[in-house]
Design a protein around this nucleic acid. Structure first.
Length: 742
DNA sequence: TTAGGGTTAG
């Protein structure tokens, strides 16, 4: 009883201390509040009175805990196990041991069913003992179980004056509410605490803002409204708060508005920092305005803010996405020269960039460089490489890499398996793709819509559209929804199987399912119409697509160009090229190749060369197809000087001739009596396992026969019988196809 | 609790 009398008399002192702290807190936090409302005081705390017997038991427990410090609580409290009642004894014990934080925690752990008041007291003890993480954990565990928030806050307020006096405790509860996603409750708590004169800290409010931005449909508006409302109530927003606004505006692609926020920050007393700039730079990169992003880096320099790894990473990533990987690596080296240490992520960006360009050797070079920097490859980096190998059709190597991952203890995930499944599907190895799908299920990975799309696409490319359809039907039964890629894959499958009508029907079904045809859908069907000589229908679709506000891509233009060219409508093709150049739509190698292919097949090498020159003047690099077209065309026109020139250039660049180009080239050289060069090429193509056409064999048979090389002649005879009949058939088939398109 | 990475379709 004496102890409780002392407790009551000390209450006045504590109340006084409490008022002082609150006033200090208000001065700090309500400085910007225009009309601070009168606040209500925290209630007085008075614990339940105990009987002499209970009070004695409490004292004995507390004494045991304090005196047997080096023994565990469960051991110390064995004698009290059956008589301890949390609703009677818990608070009393806590009062006695309150200054020994670790014993409070151990004791509280021991208590099986603590009262809410007891929990709140321990939370206060954690905070006042400077162990906010423990407090956070306790609050989180309690609130996650969806118990009554109202009673919890009531108890926390009730116990505050005696046990806490540290407003951080309300910050912690606010943070937990945000963390578990009950943002409305967090807002209510903010207002409730305001009545007591406690303003939730700006850091916690920032946490709230970031979740508000991410979790609500109109995040930015909510964030902006909250900023202005809370500012009136006393929250002094800081740089981090503005960064959240910049980030949410950038997510909505409202980069100009985001930049305005950055410009106005200083007026509000918050200087933009490296995060503000990096966020905005990332925003500009995402909308494709890399130039503005680079200007902002300069602006940072003028303000004395140094770009960091994040700033550079954005630039590097987006250069990679634009296929400017060489430039990206240049920026990467520049970054390193400023002593910024690259991490796994920036290496992944570059490795992925090189993989997507098909430059696997550069990707592996960076992979090994990264490991020399003691960065340990993770699942994402391995998956990037696996995907690069799959794209190049190197399935054996991709499989090896998968096993390397496993041997290093890494667990390939859904993305890794999906990349492999897609690779096998495209390599016409659907059986392997399906066996990988089964393995995913065995090891507990859940195939997702991307996995099924890859499987379906593999089937479609084999012409098995019906099987793909059944598979997707089965997938829908599992609750997965088809997306635009899945539909496009099926539409493409139908088109390639010559069933355009059904493809168009599927486009309509897709609309009914709430998915809208995109540029890829239209381009796919337009390509099918072009290939079936229905240019008018292709044009209709283009019109429809433009009417819907869909922007054609270079692939759309290339589909049209290919349509015009293969149908011999060269004037239309040329007009399309001029139109593209006038409108600033940059043609690519494929665009020029289509025109050159048709012109050269019409033996018009003068016009082919003109197009080639136009291509070079636009800075568009020739590829393997370009060289094959030029060499084949010039050879047929007997322009062997030009053919030889392009051949040496293509060899230098590491490109290879195709069988038909080899044959044409060899025949041209033969006509010019360049037998040594012709023979060298003939040997080269045989070594590459490419089959020359029958005319070429005839030429070498004659040559060797005349030279008396009977052994070689006989060998060639066998070879021509074995290979050429088949090849001739293939060639004839190929020529027929071309003819049918004209 | 503010900034960056890998998988599907033409």
């Amino acid at each position: 009883m004496i102890r409780y009398a002392l407790f009551t008399s000390s209450n006045r002192l504590l109340a006084f201390k409490s008022q002082l702290i609150i006033v200090r807190y208000l001065n700090q936090n309500l400085s910007s509040s225009l009309n601070p409302k009168p606040t209500r005081p925290f209630p007085d705390y008075s614990p339940k009175k105990l009987t002499i017997r209970d009070s004695d038991l409490v004292h004995r427990i507390a004494t045991s805990i304090k005196q047997r410090r080096y023994e565990s609580i469960p051991r110390v409290l064995i004698p009290f196990q059956s008589i301890f009642n949390p609703s009677i004894h818990l608070i009393g014990v806590l009062i006695e041991i309150r200054h020994d934080f670790s014993r409070v925690c151990d004791f509280f752990d021991w208590v099986k069913e603590p009262t809410l008041e007891g929990l709140c007291i321990v939370v206060h003890i954690c905070v006042s003992s400077r162990h906010p993480k423990n407090a956070h954990q306790l609050v989180l565990e309690y609130l996650r179980k969806c118990r009554s928030l109202r009673s919890f806050v009531e108890q926390l307020v009730y116990t505050y004056k005696e046990w806490g006096l540290n407003p951080l405790v309300f910050d912690i509860v606010f943070q937990v509410l945000v963390e578990i996603g009950v943002l409305d409750e967090a807002r209510k708590l903010f207002h409730k605490m305001l009545n007591y004169g406690v303003v939730i800290s700006v850091d916690s409010c920032n946490f709230y803002l970031s979740r508000l931005a991410a979790n609500t449909s109109d995040g930015v508006t909510m964030v902006i409204n909250t900023i202005s409302e809370f500012k009136e109530l006393g929250v002094c927003w800081n740089t981090r708060s503005h960064n959240i606004v910049i980030h949410s505006l950038c997510t909505l692609k409202k980069v100009k508005e985001a930049e305005n926020v950055l410009s106005e920050m200083e007026l509000k007393g918050c200087s933009p920092d490296v995060v503000s700039y990096s966020t905005l730079i990332e925003g500009y990169c995402r909308v494709g305005e890399l130039q503005r992003a680079l200007e902002l880096i300069e602006q940072m320099g003028l303000k004395g803010i140094k770009p960091n790894l994040f700033t550079y990473s954005s630039i590097i990533l987006h250069l990679c996405k634009q296929n400017k990987v060489v430039d990206a690596e240049r920026v990467f080296r520049e970054m390193m020269s400023h002593d910024i240490i690259p991490d796994k992520i920036v290496y992944t960006n570059l490795i992925d960039g090189f993989c997507k360009l098909g430059n696997l050797s550069a990707a592996y070079r960076l992979f090994s460089e990264m490991q020399k920097q003691r960065l340990v490859p993770d699942v994402v980096i391995y998956t990037t490489l696996v995907c690069g190998l799959c794209r190049c059709g190197k399935m054996v190597e991709a499989d090896k890499l998968l096993h390397q991952m496993l041997s290093e203890g890494l667990k390939p995930d859904e993305v890794t398996y999906t990349a492999l499944i897609d690779g096998y599907g495209k390599a016409d190895e659907t059986k392997k793709a399906f066996s990988l799908h089964n393995r995913m299920l065995q090891i507990g990975l859940t195939p997702n819509i991307v996995t099924y799309t890859a499987l379906a696409d593999g089937l479609c490319k084999k012409g098995e559209v019906e099987t793909a359809n059944e598979l997707l039907h089965e997938m829908c039964g599992k609750g997965l929804e088809l997306n635009i890629c899945t539909y496009n894959s099926l539409i493409n499958g139908l088109c390639k199987a010559g069933n355009i009508e059904q493809a168009v029907k599927l486009m309509e079904d897709m609309e009914l399912a709430g998915l809208h045809s995109d540029t890829i859908t239209y381009t796919t069907v337009m390509d099918a119409y072009c290939k079936s000589r229905e240019m008018a229908r292709a044009h209709e679709l283009l019109r429809e697509m433009l009417d819907k506000g869909l922007q054609p891509t270079i692939v759309t233009y290339n589909v049209l160009m290919n349509g015009f060219c293969t149908l011999g409508m060269l004037e239309d093709g040329k007009r399309l090229l001029s139109w593209m150049l006038d409108k600033g739509v940059m043609p690519n190698t494929t665009t020029y190749n289509s025109l050159m292919k048709q012109l050269s097949s019409e033996h018009n090498m003068k016009a082919t060369t003109e197009i080639y020159r136009g291509m070079c003047s636009q800075g568009v690099m020739p590829d393997s197809n370009t060289y094959n077209i030029l060499i084949k065309g010039h050879s047929k026109a007997r322009n062997m000087k030009e053919a030889c020139y392009f051949h040496s250039e293509m060899v230098e660049k590491g490109f290879n001739l195709r069988a038909t180009s080899y044959s044409a080239f060899i025949k041209g050289l033969f006509k010019k009596k360049k037998f040594i060069e012709a023979r060298k090429l003939f040997e080269e193509m045989r070594q590459e396992d490419l089959v020359a056409d029958k005319d070429v064999y005839d030429l070498f048979l004659d040559l060797n026969y005349k030279e008396g090389n009977m052994e070689v002649t006989l060998e060639l005879c066998d070879e021509v019988i074995e290979k050429c009949l088949v090849v001739e058939n293939l060639e004839t088939h190929d020529e027929k196809n071309i003819a049918s398109n004209i």
